[in-house]
């Protein structure tokens, strides 16, 4: 895991065709025939899926396209009706969520799940894996786990500084703002030291002032060699930071490609952007509409 991987990963994507389910040169996730229905409704029906290692992949699509359900399936939070998928060659089908996370594939949630009655630093410490003190009998003997706890705390403090949360160290996580919660969740996920980090709408509910720094943090994840897969509605973010975009609609992957290709693909604009603008205007806060408008202006300026 280093800067080189991600750079070569990005270069390698240049040769990948823009077809749904396109094979990647060095996939970290490979999935086949993943389906999930609710009642009579097909939420996910993915024939083939590959996620390239070391790059930032965006998963976009209109509301109800099955993005979050696919996230839940891949990470073991939901059980598919059928399908098979693997992470780094490990078959994941049927594996419970915690084992998926231990393999190095960690997710965050659309509705941020910070533990509000725990302090920020306790939230962080929880993320560390392989803690001796988390075993019942050992936990009764502090000398056995104190040194490890100390190491974990140092690592947690480092991450808190990196995510500019060090001032909030002793605050209850419940007192953080929406954006700070997203940051905390991301930092906590890093305590697991995942190879693949999956972010479910990292920009939802984030104060515009924080957005830029959040973008920077996501990029830094890639730059330290991790693979990032994220679901997002904020097209600005998708355009800005993703190396590859997968478009879902009605449970299927309908298009794939580099962001600039996807943005200009008329099929995608029809299938996704139209629906997105119709469906999501009510949800977007004024700030993100403004951000989107300014992004469009930028684009026009460039076109000129």
């Amino acid at each position: 895991m280093d800067v080189e991987t991600s750079a070569t990963g990005r270069e390698a994507l240049a040769s990948v065709p823009n077809t749904p389910g396109a094979p990647k040169p060095d996939p970290i996730i490979v999935g086949d025939d993943i389906t999930r229905t609710f009642g009579g409704l097909t939420a996910v029906d993915v024939e083939h899926l590959e996620i390239q290692r070391g790059v930032i992949t965006a998963l976009i699509g209109p509301n109800g396209a099955g993005k979050t359900t696919l996230f839940n399936l891949l990470t073991g939070f939901d059980k598919p009706d059928s399908g098979d998928w693997s992470f780094n060659g490990h078959r994941l089908a049927g594996l419970p969520a915690f084992k998926v996370a231990r393999l190095g594939m960690v997710r965050t949630f659309q509705l941020t799940k910070v533990l509000s009655k725990l302090t920020v630093i306790e939230n962080m410490r929880l993320g560390a894996t392989g803690q001796r003190g988390e075993r019942f009998w050992l936990s009764l003997l502090p000398p056995l786990w104190r040194p490890q706890e100390q190491e974990n705390t140092e690592r947690a403090d480092e991450l808190l500084r990196r995510f500019k949360l060090d001032a909030k160290r002793e605050d209850f996580a419940g007192s953080l703002s929406g954006g700070q919660r997203k940051l905390l969740e991301m930092a906590r996920a890093l305590m697991v030291d995942p190879e693949l980090i999956m972010l479910d709408e990292p920009m939802a509910g984030v104060n515009p002032a924080l957005k830029q720094s959040l973008l920077g943090h996501v990029k830094s994840l890639r730059d330290e060699g991790r693979t990032v897969l994220f679901v997002e509605h904020d097209m600005d973010m998708v355009r800005d930071i993703s190396d590859w975009v997968i478009v879902m609609a009605q449970g299927k992957i309908v298009a794939e490609g580099r962001p600039e290709q996807i943005m200009s693909d008329p099929a995608v604009i029809d299938a996704y952007l139209g629906a997105h603008h119709d469906a999501d205007l009510s949800e977007l806060d004024a700030a993100s509409i403004e951000a989107e408008a300014s992004a469009e202006l930028d684009q026009e300026a460039k076109d000129d």
Binding site: A97, F98, K99, A101, R102, V106, K113, L118, L126, E134
Partner: peptide, 15 residues
């Protein structure tokens, strides 16, 4: 205590 708050979050961290 974390399970009491949100068990899915705990699960997502490999516990």
């Amino acid at each position: 205590k974390s399970i009491r708050e949100d068990e899915d979050a705990v699960r997502s961290l490999g516990k």
